[in-house]
Amino acid sequence: MDSITQIALGSAVGHAVLGRQIGRRAALWGALLGTLPDLDVFLPAANDVAAFTEHRGFSHSLLVIAAITPLLVWLARRLHPDTAHLRGRWYALIFLVLTTHVLLDAFTVYGTQLFWPLSDYPVSGSVIFIIDPLYTLPLLIGVGIALFARDTDRGMRANTVGLVLSCLYLAWACGAKWHTDTVVREYLARENMPHERVLTTPGAFNTLIWRIVVMDDDGYYEGFYSLIDGHPAPTFTRHVQTPEQLEPLHALPHVDRLRRFTHGFYSVREQDNTLILSDLRMGMRDSYVFRFALATQDQDTGWQAITPYQLETRYSSGQLGWLWRRLRSAELE
């Protein structure tokens, strides 16, 4: 999730655990710890593909969190000697803030390596968009009231309400995904549509419109399904991938790593004599968030691997406009 959400969640969890005992310091520790796992983005990486696939790695591992929690508890008690008797609550605050961070990330489509180093498999729930105001706002309001309320009990209640509402929204998102998955499975079976793998993920900033990617041997379908427009079936657009487009991948480094990290949801295209691989899980057609240049074409030697680099994302305001119109008027385009 985005940094604001993780800070808000960490602050709310921290205040819920230790706010009554140490006041605003609990929320501050929660905010700092809620940011800590994402600091891995500042670590050096060999190239853009490595940075992409190593993010949410060791710093998001439940095993690493369990190992470093005692050290962080020792540090907190050293910095706040007046709270040394609250050792158990410090353990709860630190472990819960770090754990809720990585578990929330695992609900997004990007993927989180929860069991590193035993496994580098990126767990991906695809339940909530990486930025969702309806999840974040209750946390911000609740912890905001708690920080400035003169009445401690009132502040604790407001913070608890914020946490409960955010959890209920996440539960709603899980239910919406389950319903969407059911609709898509029934549609594929009814239409006898061949497929190898299927992805459903919420549209930008909401859980009412869901994006669907269906992979098959010759390319993929990209479609959308709305919970509110009254249409019982998703709408799809076909995108063809020829064997000639995919053939150069076999000899290129980094491809296996990208295949595994994207769970196989990727496309390949040639642009200006450059071979580009796009992660189909995030973004929309022609505006995918993660696109990597992997090779360039030479007239004599064919495709030659290059140091991979990420291409700039070109966002389309028209796509967000379409999403908004569909949310408002159930418009199909």
Rank of each mutant, 00 (worst) to 15 (best):
T152P: 02
L311Y: 07
L36R: 13
G283A: 09
R285C: 08
V213D: 04
Q310W: 00
P44V: 06
Q310S: 12
M282E: 13
D300K: 11
I212T: 06
R269L: 11
L104M: 15
I212A: 09
S287M: 13
D218M: 07
F290Q: 09
Q245E: 13
Q299R: 12
G142V: 04
A66Q: 09
P234L: 02
G10A: 06
V123H: 11
A106I: 00
H85M: 07
V214F: 03
G30Y: 00
L134P: 08
H80R: 14
I141S: 14
T301L: 13
G230N: 13
M1F: 01
F205M: 12
Y315L: 05
W74S: 09
T274W: 12
L188Q: 02
V183A: 09
A176T: 07
D153T: 12
Q299V: 07
S267D: 14
P232F: 02
L140N: 11
S11T: 01
A12V: 00
G203A: 10
G14S: 01
T307D: 14
R150W: 07
T35D: 11
D229P: 09
P44T: 08
V102Y: 11
E312I: 00
L327C: 00
Q113A: 12
F265I: 01
D132T: 05
Y225H: 08
Q241L: 10
D151F: 05
V164K: 14
T235I: 12
A50Q: 10
D298W: 01
A46I: 01
A189N: 13
R56Y: 09
Q6G: 11
F107E: 11
T301M: 12
G175D: 09
L93A: 06
L98F: 01
V289P: 05
L249E: 02
G162I: 04
W29Q: 02
S329L: 10
G302K: 07
Q299W: 05
T136A: 12
H80K: 13
V161T: 15
E270K: 04
T152M: 11
L258R: 00
L39H: 10
L79K: 08
A149M: 06
R87Y: 06
I130N: 10
I130D: 04
Y315Q: 05
I306D: 12
L98R: 04
T100A: 10
Q304D: 04
H101K: 14
H85F: 09
S329V: 03
D279L: 02
C167T: 14
D153E: 15
F95D: 03
C174L: 13
R25K: 14
W29T: 08
G19N: 00
F95N: 07
Y309T: 07
A295N: 11
G203Q: 06
Q113S: 10
A171S: 14
I7Y: 08
T180A: 13
Q245W: 02
W322C: 15
D279V: 01
T69A: 15
M282S: 14
V183H: 07
R257W: 00
L165I: 10
T200A: 06
A305V: 03
L86H: 07
V161K: 15
R285Y: 13
H85A: 13
E186R: 13
V255K: 04
A26Y: 00
Y169T: 07
V41Q: 15
D82L: 10
L86G: 09
W74P: 03
A31N: 03
V161P: 15
P243I: 00
S226C: 07
W90V: 05
P243H: 06
A26K: 03
R157H: 14
E247S: 07
S317C: 08
